[in-house]
């Protein structure tokens, strides 16, 4: 475990030098929140727009950080042979993937906390003490699911294929999941099956004080299982070529 943590530390150090990553993970949701949080009144998913948009933007930054950055990096590091080089060390086989997920979790947590603080001090969101961490944890867990998907894509595809594939996946979950614009009507019948919608809806249900639907929670767990399954298949399939 010590080796895995040493690798995670080095990965974090790299990430602090990568500006592009922070633009999508932190800057984009912060700017959108500052621009739009006070522009709308009325309720979305049963809560104020400011509260909905807080959960929404936290999810945007977090899932984008877990998916986009990771998939491309993993694919490049596989192609360049860094994963292979690591296999020659005494690190256990799973260490590389685990460190990628831990790094995602660290950075997405930072972006979630920033957006939630904005909600509190800029978006006029008032919650009971326990609600803050529960909302943050919900978004955090849901975003981490996408790190597993990133592992699957990164191992399966070459770097030049990964770029368009992650973009398609990213925008699908962004639009179908109602991150871009809240779901209603026909779009909702499909969109409510996405993990991005499920995460935001659980968040707003917690804020509203309503009971959280079991279906949403089960949905997230099913997505997690699917993404982990894809990741395991992709990693195993490349065991001799990585």
């Amino acid at each position: 475990m010590g080796g895995t943590l040493a690798l995670t530390r080095a990965e974090l150090m790299r990430l602090t030098r990568n500006k592009r990553y922070f633009i999508f993970t932190v800057l984009l949701p912060v700017i959108l929140y500052l621009l739009l949080a006070r522009q709308f009144t009325g309720k979305v998913y049963g809560v104020s727009f400011g509260a909905f948009y807080m959960v929404d933007m936290a999810m945007l930054g977090a899932f984008s950080g877990a998916l986009n950055g990771n998939a491309i990096r993993i694919s490049q590091e596989k192609k360049e042979g860094w994963i292979r080089q690591l296999r020659l060390t005494s690190l256990p086989a799973y260490a590389y993937v685990v460190s990628k997920i831990l790094v995602s979790m660290a950075t997405t947590l930072a972006s979630i906390v920033i957006v939630i603080l904005l909600g509190r001090f800029y978006g006029n969101v008032h919650l009971a003490g326990w609600q803050w961490p529960v909302v943050a944890l919900t978004v955090w867990f849901s975003a981490t699911i996408f790190a597993a998907l990133a592992v699957a894509i990164g191992y399966k595809f070459a770097p030049d294929q990964v770029q368009p594939i992650t973009m398609i996946v990213y925008f699908s979950f962004l639009i179908l999941g109602g991150i871009w614009y809240p779901l209603s009507g026909a779009l909702k019948t499909v969109g409510q099956l996405t993990p991005t919608y499920q995460a935001v809806k659980i968040g707003t249900d917690i804020i509203e004080g309503a009971s959280v639907s079991m279906g949403l929670a089960i949905g997230l767990v099913v997505w997690l299982a699917i993404f982990i399954g894809l990741a395991v298949v992709a990693v195993r399939a490349t065991a001799e070529t990585v």
Partner: peptide
């Protein structure tokens, strides 16, 4: 076919791999 971790310095990389040994 072995690659190196990008975005870190030579010393940081050698330190990492040494730590793993």
């Amino acid at each position: 076919s072995g690659g190196l971790m990008p975005e870190v310095t030579v010393r940081e990389l050698v330190t990492l791999v040494t730590t793993l040994h």
